[in-house]
């Protein structure tokens, strides 16, 4: 166990943190834009957003490989203009994480915004508040419990992402070896102790995340549901 390198822990945290930030902003933005609008093609767009939830991760990874590979539409553009190579790099792991965790954030955000009483936002508008102010002072704080749940789930999903990451980022020790990857290849090469160590770490992380979320939600619900005093 002395030769365990801790890079998988830091890499996993880095990948999950960056992907969660991107997913949170994009999920909240799209959910808020789409939730009270109806237009042609909306259900197609929403199905597209949620597709990674039902597809095998390898299929998502394959799609990303086609798109971000050296000869892919996006991959060749990124390489030519910005000298960024996505395949076999930690950026690939971030992109895979973003794609698989986005549906969780999007769904949570849609549910949170849908459950808001539209009269609260309308009341703010009639009092002269701009759409920006309505969002930051009414919609966002009232939707926050649901948004936080989405954020935590996305982080956990990003932390545990394996299939699509393997397809896009591969397994390069010290470069793309996230915890799930380290577990898989430790088992493959017969290093059961190392695998057990990483399994313990990821179970502890997942468990404490859910414990904290449950605690926070209960505390929050109690605060809003207090009896008249």
């Amino acid at each position: 166990m002395n030769d365990v390198h801790y890079s998988p822990l830091f890499l996993s945290l880095k990948v999950a943190a960056i992907s969660t930030s991107v997913v949170f902003i994009a999920g909240v933005l799209f959910a808020h834009l789409l939730v009270r609008r109806n237009f042609f093609g909306k259900s197609f767009l929403e199905s597209f957003f949620l597709l990674p939830l039902v597809l095998p991760p390898t299929v998502v990874g394959f799609g990303l490989l086609v798109l971000f590979g050296k000869n892919g539409w996006v991959g060749s553009w990124l390489l030519t203009w910005f000298d960024i190579q996505v395949v076999f790099s930690w950026i690939g792991a971030v992109i895979a994480s973003i794609v698989v965790s986005f549906p969780l954030m999007y769904q949570s955000a849609v549910a949170s915004f849908e459950s808001l009483d539209p009269r609260l936002e309308n009341a703010a508008r009639t009092m002269g508040a701009s759409e920006w102010r309505v969002f930051w002072t009414i919609s966002f704080p009232l939707a926050w419990p649901g948004l936080l749940a989405g954020l935590v789930l996305s982080f956990a999903r990003g932390l545990g992402e394996f299939g699509a990451t393997l397809m896009l980022a591969g397994y390069i020790p010290g470069k793309t070896d996230t915890i799930p990857m380290a577990i898989y290849f430790a088992v493959q090469s017969g290093h059961m102790e190392t695998a057990t160590f990483w399994v313990t770490i990821i179970v502890a992380l997942g468990f404490s995340t859910i414990m904290w979320l449950n605690w926070w939600t209960k505390r929050n619900v109690r605060r809003f549901a207090k009896d008249h005093t």
């Binding site: 009483d117 009269r119 309308n122 009341a123 508008r125 009232l142 809003f224």
Partner: peptide
């Protein structure tokens, strides 16, 4: 609505909780 300068008392009041 922002530019109309009206007061609107909604059914059930719509106070910000």
């Amino acid at each position: 609505p922002q530019k109309r300068n009206i007061g609107y008392l909604f059914q059930d009041y719509a106070l910000f909780p």
